[in-house]
Design a binder for these strands. Structure first.
Lengths: 153, 153
DNA sequence: TTAGCTTTTGCAAATCTTTGCAGGTGCTAA
DNA sequence: TTAGCACCTGCAAAGATTTGCAAAAGCTAA
C-alpha cells in the first residue's frame, strides 16, 4: 500500500524517528509513517483525536485503534514524548540525541522546550540522598508562562 | 442516610479533608465521606477500582460514576493528590499544610515521599530564567528504587 | 424542626481507550 | 525477485471514564 510519496525533505525529526523505529526492528507500515508524518507536521503537541482526524483525511481506512497502538509504540520506543495535561494526553516528536523537556502553559496551552540541564541537579540529589534513579525522559511541567503572567490585570 | 458511625478518631488527614470540603461549600454526603474514609484508611496510593470495591462493600448502592466524580472533586479542591503512573491513576490524601511529592518505583510499585525542598531549586531556576511559574503541587517522578536496584544481578 | 432551594446521586447512555482475532503485508533470506 | 513467517491492521467487542437527567438528600433560614 502506497499512501503518500516522499514529500518529507528536510524533516530531520521525521527521518530520525524512522531510523529509530527501523533500528529497533519495527515495521515501517504506511499507517505508522502517516501517523508519524502527521505528528511531525503539527507545530505543537497534538492529541489522539487530532492525529486521527488529520491522518484519516489522507488515508480513510485508518482505524482509531491503530492510532492508539502506533502512538503508544512510538512513545515506548522513545520516538515521541507524551505530555499529560490534566486529563488530556498530547504528543510531540523527540529528537534523536537531545532529549528535552517541556514546560506547558495552563492558560494559553503553549509548550516550551527545557534543556535537560535544569533537571540534572534534581536528579543528582535523588540519586545521592535516596539511591533512587528517576526516569525523567518524558518530563513535563505545567504552569503559567511569562506572557500569560503579564496579561493578568 | 447513615452509612457508618464516626469510627475515625485520630484520623487527622481525614478531619482536615472534611474541614476543607466544608469550607469550600461542598456537601458532606455519606458517599463522599465513605470514599474519603476508604482513601484515608489505605496505607498507600489507591486506584479508582480499589476505592470503588472497598467502598461498595460498605455501601452497596454506591455507583462507580460517583466515585469518579468524588475523586475528581477531591483532587480539584486539593484534598488529595493524583499520581499518574504510566496509564494508571492513583490517589492519596494530602495534608492540610504540607504538600509533599512522590517518587514511584516502576518495578515494585512502592511510593516514597519527597520533601518539596528537592524541587525548590528547580522551580526557582524556571522562574528566574523563563519567568515560568511551574505548578508542582501534584508532582511525581517514576524511577527505580534502591531495593530494586540492588536486586538486579 | 421544617420547608425549600440547590447540589448530589444512581442510572443509563455516550464517549474514549484497549484488546482478541483473522486476514493482510513488510521484511529477510535465498 | 519471490516465498514464508512474524508482525500489523481493521473490525468488533470489551473495558474504562464521562455526561445528562430525574429523583433524592444535604444545608440554610425561619
Amino acid at each position: 500500500m502506497q499512501i503518500f510519496a516522499g514529500a518529507n525533505k528536510g524533516m530531520t525529526h521525521y527521518d530520525d524517528a524512522v531510523a529509530i523505529l527501523r533500528e529497533k526492528g519495527n515495521r515501517l507500515t504506511p499507517q505508522r509513517l502517516l501517523v508519524l508524518s502527521t505528528i511531525a507536521e503539527s507545530r505543537h503537541h497534538i492529541g489522539i483525536d487530532e492525529i486521527y482526524k488529520a491522518s484519516k483525511s489522507v488515508y480513510p481506512y485508518l482505524d482509531l485503534a491503530t492510532v492508539y497502538r502506533t502512538v503508544h509504540l512510538f512513545r515506548d520506543v522513545g520516538v515521541l514524548t507524551e505530555i499529560g495535561i490534566g486529563d488530556r494526553h498530547t504528543y510531540e516528536l523527540r529528537t534523536r540525541d537531545g532529549q528535552h523537556h517541556h514546560m506547558l502553559c495552563r492558560q494559553c496551552n503553549k509548550t516550551f522546550s527545557l534543556s535537560p540541564h535544569y533537571l540534572e541537579a534534581f536528579k543528582a540529589s535523588l540519586v545521592k540522598d535516596f539511591n533512587f534513579e528517576p526516569d525523567l525522559d518524558n518530563f513535563a511541567v505545567a504552569g503559567v508562562c511569562t506572557d500569560c503572567k503579564s496579561q493578568r490585570t
